[in-house]
């Protein structure tokens, strides 16, 4: 998509475990995403997909296992510094409603990257332009459609030039007619060489854009492979049942 994607790195999740009390949410998850590749994570609700994403940028600390960027473990890094390298987009956008669209994007540039006001604004406007929202810089998030808000959220994450992008059901909260625009931005990003992990219910997107599709159920990756293998030649009966229901 832009120069922002040229710095992407590989991602490895190794044997990640996480329990909330007696509830074992992740039970040894492995996921390998080569530099510039896109992994789609599919599976039923409650299978641990969103939690897995949060252990990658350590919004939730895993109990056991390892997360590697570019082959190096990040579990001992400063989590705030790590999160500046890993962009994340949420189902509910999580834009800051008390700020303009522009300020949503410039906030981290100015406060974390210490850019001057003019420079931050230039970066933000360029990023908004790329998601087709240059004209909405001065609007409030609430004045935008859900699809536009999600594209702002993507621009906000990309402005920090992340090395990996995580998408947590980025289109699940959108009206059907708005889904396409957001998926288009994500597909462009994948084509531009960003390393991405995409938790999604959009099987069409997974089939067309993903390099790897991982099927999660009850806290483990039951089956993973190229999209054709997953969608055409699923081996595990639970994956076959899941696909029968969603396709």
């Amino acid at each position: 998509m832009t120069a922002s994607t040229t710095t992407s790195v590989s991602l490895d999740v190794r044997d990640v475990h996480l329990a909330f009390g007696p509830n074992r949410v992740l039970r040894g998850v492995d996921l390998t995403v080569p530099r510039g590749a896109t992994a789609c994570v599919i599976g039923p609700s409650g299978s641990g997909k969103s939690t897995l994403l949060r252990t990658i940028n350590r919004l939730i600390e895993p109990d056991r296992g390892d997360v590697l960027l570019d082959g190096r473990s990040v579990l001992r890094d400063d989590p705030d510094a790590l999160r500046q390298r890993v962009g994340m987009v949420f189902q509910q956008f999580n834009l800051f409603p008390h700020m303009s669209v522009l300020r949503n994007v410039t906030l981290a540039l100015r406060r974390l990257r210490k850019l001057g006001e003019d420079e931050a604004e230039a970066v933000a406007r360029a990023q908004l332009e790329l998601v087709g929202l240059a004209g909405k810089a001065d609007a409030r998030p609430a004045q935008l459609s859900g699809g536009q808000q999600q594209r702002v959220a993507i621009a906000r994450a990309l402005a920090l030039r992340p090395e990996v992008m995580l998408f947590d059901e980025a289109t699940s909260a959108l009206d059907p007619e708005l889904v396409k625009g957001v998926l288009g931005v994500m597909a462009d990003l994948a084509a531009g060489g960003m390393t991405m992990v995409v938790v999604t219910h959009e099987m069409g997107f997974a089939r067309q854009v993903a390099d790897t599709v991982a099927f999660m159920d009850r806290g483990v990756v039951l089956e993973a492979g190229p999209p054709e293998a997953i969608f055409e030649r699923a081996e595990h009966p639970r994956l076959q049942r899941f696909l029968a229901q969603v396709l």
Binding site: N57, L59, D80, A81, R83, Q84, G87, M88, F90, Q92, F93, N94, L95, F96, P97, H98, L107, A108, R111, L112, R156, A157, L160
Partner: peptide
């Protein structure tokens, strides 16, 4: 809570997120 998560995911510390995102909204 999603507001805090959104701010933390950008790389803000807890206190920065509170100061810039959570408290201004809460007080309004």
């Amino acid at each position: 809570a999603a507001q805090l998560e959104g701010a933390r995911a950008l790389g803000f510390s807890w206190s920065e997120a509170m100061r810039m995102v959570i408290i201004p909204q809460g007080i309004r």
